[in-house]
Design a protein around this nucleic acid. Structure first.
Length: 570
RNA sequence: CGGGACGUGGCGCAGUUUGGUAGCGCGCAGCGUUCGGGACGCUGAGGUCGCGGGUUCAAGUCCCGCCGUCCCGACCA
């Protein structure tokens, strides 16, 4: 490709809308252009790189036995109502209507399409297992699209689905995909970790996230200092403390006047107890039923964990009108005397202390000495706190540290969560109809594009690994007006083409500095400078973008030297 | 959706406080000089100042409404 013809105008200045490096550089280098918030055009350079990411993903999917197909994007609503996601996704899905007013949605993933499809084609246990995938635009009307390609409303995703006869088969399919994912991310050159994760609105059990490490990452994960535990902060479970015995130091339940003490901080101030000795009792509404969650006062409730326990029912925190309607004393709620209409969930850490300071269920009054079983009951003990830096590792008690990352892959063991409500069943050996045992596997292609830039850039621009670079080599005419320069640069460019090395020829009537700056910005792995200065000495100059290493090569053997430098770069 | 900010040639911005002929840099076009790390001179094209209403002799500037974009929070590949 001749740069003079390339449909790409680089920007000299940073676009005002871009904050993070990947967004800024992808815009400046003309890889993408914005159409609307979170929606982008893939420009020729960006599309080439995206295609290369897809190629790696397809190769590993095909090698693991998955078969590519393509499902529609515009989907009828009915199956989504059966699985509960029509409601569960809420405002997150785009919901177009056809001319008759029928409800459709733009696919955020496609379990609801693929399960009935497999049932139609592969109705027998003899047909299983089967693994199908596609690479397709996905649509989620994010509350806040952000950071360019890192969180768009339209994004390219590889989604795969496995169908097995039983749990054991699903676990095997899952293992195969897990390993395929490792190969994909290894080949793409990403620095990543694999963590246990929260399943979110897809629902299901065991699942893992593949997280590319990045300072701008929106996803937090925890890692044990001893290296034996990794988890998404949304799913991480801290080590539970040893239960404390109330008998050792009996305390009566005592009421204390605490006017206006509606927060933990004010309780601490007025009652003289440390925050970790206060019991936070947070009220939630689960489709009309009240649920109380107990955590120590110095901890926060992990609402996503609570939501997961109730999926697909919707969980929301009490609002003012809920308090008014139900009569609970906002700011002074305690679990004592709750009737059976309130489900009481407690975090495991509540066992670590015998007596608690908490609300008395009357305005301006708290209690001390509240004791589990004696003064209040707990219906379910669960992991319900948000993890934080310094918590103990559930495996060996080591210190947990928090890191930032971008989720680029997520795999799920869905079981029958989708096939059962969709009545997607196969006939088993004994003649009975059973729901498929499913797995679901996503890779964010556009997000990988951005995550790779986050991990591979410097002040001058992007630094592409050669596997993903839009072109591997930039041949730069340093003085475009010298006929000898033009002639030699054209020759080298032609020879590279014959050697099947992807190159651009910067034949623009620009000063050399502009071409160097653009080559650095776009991030071609190897730059070749052909100029009159070198021609006098019979050489061209090579520069490896990643290391900055410069070498000279004899003019006659330039193409071979380029191939050599290229082969030694990542 | 809640909180904050911003919408002025393709891009980055000033002008809005105090209403009075729409400006600057980059980019773009032409000519000339220059030419191995984002050159310089001259000339020029390009703007319904986000949209709609209102106030006023007069609105980019003041008032009301709407739309869009970005940033901070709750969701996700």
């Amino acid at each position: 490709m001749r740069v003079s013809k390339l449909f790409a105008r680089t920007l000299r200045e940073d676009p005002a809308e871009a904050e993070v490096p990947s967004h800024r550089l992808l815009l400046r280098a003309a890889f993408i252009r914005k159409v609307a918030a979170g929606i982008y055009t893939s420009m020729p350079l960006g599309l080439r790189t995206m295609n290369k990411i897809e190629r790696v993903v397809r190769e590993e999917m095909d090698a693991s036995g998955a078969q590519e197909l393509r499902m529609p994007i515009v989907l009828p609503a009915e199956p989504w109502k059966l699985t509960g996601r029509w409601q569960a996704y809420g405002d997150q899905i785009f919901r177009p209507q056809d001319r008759h007013g029928r409800q459709f949605l733009l696919g955020p993933t496609q379990e609801e399409v693929v399960a009935p499809l497999v049932q139609q084609e592969f109705p027998s246990y003899r047909d299983l297992p089967v693994n199908v995938y596609q690479v397709e635009w996905k649509y989620r009307d994010e509350f806040r699209p952000r950071y360019g390609l890192l969180r768009g409303r339209e994004f390219l995703m590889k989604d795969a689905y496995t169908f097995d006869r039983d749990e054991e088969g699903m676990r095997e399919s899952y293992r195969v995909m897990y390993e395929a994912y490792q190969r994909v991310f290894d080949r793409l050159g990403l620095d990543y970790v694999i963590v246990e994760a929260d399943p979110g609105t897809i629902g299901g059990g065991v699942n893992h996230e593949f997280m590319a490490l990045a300072d701008v990452g929106e996803d937090l994960f925890v890692r044990c200092e001893n290296g034996d535990y990794l988890a998404d902060t949304e799913a991480a479970t801290p080590h539970a403390p040893e239960p404390a015995a109330a008998d050792d130091d009996p305390q009566p339940l005592t009421e204390v006047e605490t006017p206006g003490a509606v927060t933990i901080d004010l309780m601490v101030e007025q009652m003289g107890v440390p925050a970790e000795a206060t019991l936070k009792c947070i009220m939630f509404d689960v489709e009309g039923r009240p649920v109380a969650v107990l955590v120590p006062g110095d901890r926060e409730v992990a609402e996503e964990k609570l939501a997961r326990l109730h999926f697909p029912e919707r969980v929301r925190r009490f609002e003012d009108e809920d308090f008014t309607r139900t009569g609970f004393a906002k700011g002074f709620v305690g679990p004592q005397g709750f009737g059976p209409e309130v489900a009481i969930f407690a975090d495991h850490s509540i066992r670590g202390r015998a007596h608690w300071a908490t609300g008395a269920n009357r305005p301006d009054v708290h209690v001390t000495g509240a004791t589990v079983d004696r003064d209040f009951r707990v219906d379910r003990w669960e992991d319900l706190v948000q993890i934080r830096e310094g918590d103990r590792c559930p495996v060996d008690g080591g210190r947990l540290e928090i890191g930032r990352s971008i989720v680029v892959g997520h795999i799920y063991q869905l079981g029958t969560n989708y096939s059962a409500p969709l009545e997607a069943t196969f006939q088993d050996e004994d003649g009975s109809q059973k729901p498929y045992v499913m797995g679901s596997y996503g890779i964010g292609i556009t997000r990988i594009l951005a995550a790779t830039v986050e991990q591979h850039h410097d002040d001058a621009g992007m630094i592409w690994p050669k596997l993903l670079a839009p072109y591997e080599v930039a041949v730069i005419m340093a003085n475009a007006d010298a006929p000898a320069v033009t002639e030699e640069a054209e020759r080298i460019y032609r020879e590279l083409g014959e050697m099947r090395i992807e190159a651009v020829l910067d034949d623009r009537e620009e000063r050399a500095g502009v071409k160097f700056a653009d080559a650095d910005l776009v991030g071609y792995p190897v730059q070749v400078v052909v100029g009159s200065r070198g021609l006098e000495a019979g050489t061209v100059d090579l520069k490896a973008r990643a290391t900055g290493a410069r070498t000279k090569a004899p003019l006659a053997e330039a193409a071979q030297a380029i191939a050599h430098v290229l082969s030694s770069t990542l």
